[in-house]
Design a protein around this nucleic acid. Structure first.
Length: 108
DNA sequence: ACGGTGACGCTCA
DNA sequence: TTGAGCGCCACCG
C-alpha cells in the first residue's frame, strides 16, 4: 500500500537531515526514497515545498555539483550557501563538492 | 484517462 | 569539458 506520507512529504523529511554547511543531490534523495529514477520529481517536490518550515531545500544541488534551481533564483541560492560557509565557484559549481556532499540519510 | 510540466541525470558527439 | 537529446516521474488541469 502507499505509505502514510506522500512522495513530497517524504522528500521534505529527508531534506531536513542535511546538515548546515553540507549539500546533497536530487538523485541521492530519490535513491534514499527507494526510487532512484525520481530525481526530477524530487526537484518538483522541493519547488513546491512551503518556504517557511525548516526544510533547507537550498542544500540540494545537482549531481554534477552545480547548484541547480531555486524558487527564489539561483543567485539567492548561491548566496545562502555561501552564508553557510560553502564556496561557489564559476559556473555556479560547489567548490570541493565531493568533500561537502552529504549521503548519510537515515532510513525511514 | 491523458498529455504537459519541470529546482534532474545519463549518454554521447 | 561542454552542450544537445532523451528518458524518468510525481503532479496538475
Amino acid at each position: 500500500m502507499t505509505s502514510v506520507l506522500n512522495f513530497y512529504e517524504r522528500v521534505w523529511r529527508l531534506t531536513r537531515q542535511i546538515p548546515r554547511g553540507r549539500v546533497s543531490t536530487y538523485g541521492l534523495l530519490a535513491k534514499a526514497l527507494g526510487q532512484p529514477r525520481a530525481a526530477r520529481a524530487v526537484g518538483n517536490a522541493l519547488n513546491q515545498s512551503p518556504g517557511m518550515p525548516q526544510v533547507p531545500c537550498h542544500r540540494v544541488v545537482r549531481g554534477n555539483g552545480q547548484i541547480g534551481g531555486y524558487a527564489l533564483g539561483t543567485a539567492a541560492k548561491a548566496k545562502i550557501l555561501r552564508q553557510e560557509g560553502l564556496q561557489i565557484g564559476p559556473k555556479n559549481k560547489v567548490v570541493n563538492f565531493d568533500k561537502v556532499l552529504y549521503t548519510g540519510f537515515f532510513k525511514k
